[in-house]
């Protein structure tokens, strides 16, 4: 059960598994077909299978990168089946039926998501006018008013069912809004926290400050992804513990505890690095007590330089 080589799948490059052809196991496809009732929205089995394959190939079937099952090789485990069963199939077929122009699907979509979409846009922009404008524009795009290559294209085609359709709509709205703000930063400078840190002219730093800077860089670079996310969200973005907790789906106290532990570890590692650079313990502790204004350390830069390279950020043009 899972992905099995069967026949070529029409699609763009990257939509097939490792460039090979694949198909969903017939029994699994039957079960998924029954579960989501795709025929209601005018999708036939071939179209449904194509949607599934596209969703699976875009996300490597949930396999870690580089471990996608080789072409013409049966999957080693039931992970593909689990992956497909974990998709929001109802939302997936509805979104693709809407993208295909099914009128009944659009009626359903409007009934389910039109008002939530507007409310989410208003909540995102914190403005009734901007929110309605943003929602209307996205709605027009979803309806396929924009054309690309002579064909109407709907962003709903890019929905792959990993999360809920409503969540995808909210995230898309937030994406549009943030990009708009970042493009118009000079008009609405509300993101001073995210302003690119200007490169300060090189200064002659005292030895202790230079050692402290190196120690901080090393300590921050050693932190894990989650701790760096917590530090950035809390100290750079100024998000509350509750907001971070909601993103990570953990309790507020857990976020607080992890932050405290991260700070404690960073302090410990900075002290260790300072001592390794020749400072005594007392001098190292005194170095930690320097006025931050005397320290030419840009924490934002440090955190952003400690990236893993999974999604290297490009500055918006």
């Amino acid at each position: 059960m899972g992905i099995a080589p069967l026949e070529p799948v029409a699609g763009t490059a990257g939509e097939t598994f490792s460039g090979a052809t694949a198909a969903v196991d017939a029994a699994l496809l039957d079960g998924l077909w029954q579960a989501c009732d795709a025929a209601t929205w005018g999708l036939d089995r071939a179209e449904f299978e194509r949607i599934l394959i596209r969703a699976g190939s875009a996300q490597s079937l949930g396999f870690p990168d580089g471990t996608t099952p080789a072409p013409r090789q049966p999957p080693a485990a039931s992970q593909p089946a689990e992956f497909f069963r974990g998709l929001r199939l109802d939302d997936l077929v509805l979104a693709h039926a809407c993208a295909a122009g099914n009128e009944r699907a659009w009626e359903r979509f409007i009934a389910l998501y039109r008002q939530p979409l507007t409310r989410a846009a208003i909540a995102t922009t914190r403005s009734e006018t901007l929110g309605r404008e943003l929602a209307d524009q996205l709605y027009a795009e979803l309806y396929g008013l924009a054309e690309r290559g002579g064909q109407r294209r709907s962003p709903l085609e890019s929905y792959k069912g990993r999360g809920s359709l409503l969540g995808w709509l909210r995230t898309t709205l937030a994406q549009r809004h943030v990009d708009h703000l970042r493009r118009n930063r000079h008009e609405q400078p509300i993101e001073d926290l995210d302003a690119a840190a200007p490169d300060s002219p090189p200064q002659t730093l005292p030895a202790e400050l230079a050692a402290l800077q190196r120690a901080l860089e090393a300590a921050l670079a050693a932190r894990g992804a989650e701790e760096r996310f917590l530090l950035a969200a809390y100290y750079l973005d100024g998000q509350t513990l509750l907001a971070i907790a909601r993103i990570l789906r953990v309790h507020e106290a857990t976020v607080s505890r992890k932050l405290r532990r991260a700070l404690k570890e960073i302090r410990k590692q900075v002290l260790r690095h300072l001592q390794m650079q020749g400072l005594s313990r007392r001098a190292a502790e005194e170095a930690l007590g320097v006025d931050p204004r005397d320290l030419d350390v840009n924490l934002k830069k440090l955190l952003q330089q400690s990236q893993t390279g999974a999604f290297p950020e490009k500055a918006p043009s």
């Binding site: 970042r182 760096r228 996310f229 750079l236 998000q239 955190l303 330089q305 950020e313 918006p316």
Partner: peptide, 10 residues
């Protein structure tokens, strides 16, 4: 890891 370094996505 990306969210830790990308304020836009955060």
């Amino acid at each position: 890891a990306h969210l830790a370094v990308c304020s836009r996505c955060r």
